[in-house]
Amino acid sequence: MKNNDKLIIGGHEFQSRFILGSGKYSMKLIEAAIRDAGAEIITLAVRRANTKDQESILDHIPEGVTLLPNTSGARNAQEAVRIARLARELGCGNFIKVEIMRDTKYLLPDNQETIKATEILAKEGFVVMPYMYPDLNAARDMVNAGAATIMPLASPIGSNKGLATREFIQILIDEIDLPIIVDAGIGRPSQACEAMEMGAAAIMANTALATAGDLPLMAAAFRQAIEAGRKAYLSGLGRVLTRGASASDPLTGFLRD
């Protein structure tokens, strides 16, 4: 096990590799979920935080936990930029998860608009974490635009279908030098573990927890799965699990010099 295995996003260090969503469930459960998940980052929809409600979500987030506001509700780059600025005004800090959807049915992200928003927000000093459809060219453009991480989706939001885009996420992990955080569609701890074994830097999950019978218990299960997957990745996986087969007799054994 390598020591000092930290997740570094935009110069900020984190011990935990589990990013917790805060939508879709009771605020009373947030504190317990954060504790049992061991999470240090929690996402927050600006549209949800934009409230006078006596029960503001911000009051339920313990100190020391980094807020990751998202731009959900944005349909293009311009709207995402406006929502990001509003997040800053609301006191949510400099982290921003760019989410731009032009489809209300599957909530699939629009990579082109996301690249544009990433560029504008990075220049304004935000730590930009773009949520994207796992496409290598788009990911490279986001890197060049100033992204701090890349957040590819595993399968459609809320579907709990796991790593439907496995091969394409692997390409991002292999080719992009920024942390690859798998976001959306992870429905079970085992799927989170698998993504971590592949070399993902962290996992973001929300619906899988929100819809569990015992939310804090599921948060703890995810935490352990993510830690296990990370350890497996760092250990150098055995050949059964690595990609491609290796023959027991060397294929190059015939070479004489």
């Binding site: 549209r47 949800r48 934009n50 006078k52 944005a74 311009q78 929502i83």
Partner: peptide, 16 residues
Amino acid sequence: MSGEGLQPVLNDYVYV
């Protein structure tokens, strides 16, 4: 609604 185990939401919207 809270008693039914649901989270009541008064706003989930930003005018942009």
